[in-house]
Design a protein around this nucleic acid. Structure first.
Lengths: 218, 218
DNA sequence: CCATATTTTTGGAGTCACTGCAAAGTTTGC
DNA sequence: GCAAACTTTGCAGTGACTCCAAAAATATGG
């Protein structure tokens, strides 16, 4: 009752197009596959592809959009006595230790990473994803802290946190692209993460202080 | 001797195309002006436009690319006894107080801001500009701190700093787009900046701690 | 001043993402 | 079955961008 033939077909077609597109993109590179080709392989018209997906990039990032609220969710579910930052640190380290997909550090992520790195438009897409994530986290922080409407604190905190998460992921991805195994990277990534969250926690005020000029004469 | 006719003409043509393009974009919106139209008004062929500028976006961001190393420069020129962060705070507040262009907070910036905000592709461009800025700052911090090659500290610090700078600019720009005057925004922007740099300096570890569950019974 | 090499500009043809429209095909409710 | 609602398709077009070879402008050497 809940789903008629029409709706099922739509869901299936959309899925098929997205799957075929992802496969082709992974195999031959995003910029070396035309939408027309995706359509041909999926046995639909080009217009049908654009019926389901607004842009070529959406063929890939369709599902990834669900991870938009990941950090927000972690904060909302933090434990009693735990700060937002402590929760995010715990979650990130957990993801590293379990080789979980959610921060891009996963056994098979390197193919994906390579494909994205090779395409400027996919890179641009990643940034807007990060932007959305930052906004979502800012909203959550504002809620959870009971901040006033004009209070800039949550937005600023979210910006810092997301910047660091992005940087940590970028580090892992970079080494994966270079061909290193997840196992080889994990301990370093862990170390970087500890440092990063320490920085966020207690600040970088003392970093890189210029030496005073030596006094002219004793 | 230093510049022949050929080189002068090239420079002039490039400048003319860029100026005309910027004018048209500001007047009618980036997406409502075609490259063909820019070419027509500049009295060159479309191919000549693409000879000088790789993409339509480059017609605008050509010169802005020079500001890529702004935060890096500020750090390199910090005063004796001053930390990287203290120098950046000083520079930002100075820019706010003098209504200087360099962080996007300037009397006439609203037209530019509106144009950019209205166009997704220009927005994407802003992100890559920010990325370049972050990388440049990371390099500078690494140099100035004498960090080892693999040390993640400078890159992480740069990420946090650039994220905050971006957010502060975004705040100002948002209010300018909404039609507020620079004078009306300045004191708030100042306040936000102080808060932001305090956060960077001493961390956000204590932010948003979840209350402990009340004990079941006394 | 002329011939020639080098560089710049141009026109033309083509690719690709993406849009709008109207016709054709499919599913649904009755 | 029939009509309404919806989906798919073909077609024509726009706009950024590329490639190529011809034409125009400029530089170089005698």
């Amino acid at each position: 009752m809940s789903e008629g033939l029409r709706e099922r077909k739509k869901r299936e077609t959309r899925q098929r197009i997205s799957d075929i597109a992802t496969g082709l993109f992974l195999e031959r590179g995003f910029d070396n596959v035309t939408v027309a080709e995706v359509a041909r392989v999926a046995d639909v018209s080009v217009n049908t592809v654009f019926n389901y997906f607004k842009t070529k990039e959406d063929l890939l990032f369709d599902r990834e959009g669900e991870m938009e609220d990941l950090p927000g969710k972690v904060v909302r579910e933090r434990r009693p006595g735990e700060s937002a930052l402590a929760a995010l640190r715990r979650d990130f380290l957990d993801a590293v230790d379990t080789r979980d997909y959610r921060y891009g550090f996963h056994e098979g992520s390197d193919r994906f990473a390579r494909m994205i790195a090779a395409s400027p438009s996919l890179n641009a897409r990643l940034w807007t994803l990060n932007e959305a994530r930052e906004e979502a986290l800012a909203r959550t922080l504002a809620d959870e802290a009971g901040a006033d409407a004009g209070d800039p604190t949550p937005a600023l905190a979210a910006a810092q946190i997301c910047a660091v998460l992005r940087r940590l992921s970028a580090y892992a991805v970079q080494r994966m692209i270079a061909g290193e195994t997840v196992e080889a990277i994990a301990p370093h990534l862990r170390q970087h993460a500890e440092l990063a969250f320490d920085q966020l926690e207690s600040g970088i005020g003392a970093y890189c202080v210029r030496r005073e000029a030596a006094p002219e004469n004793a």
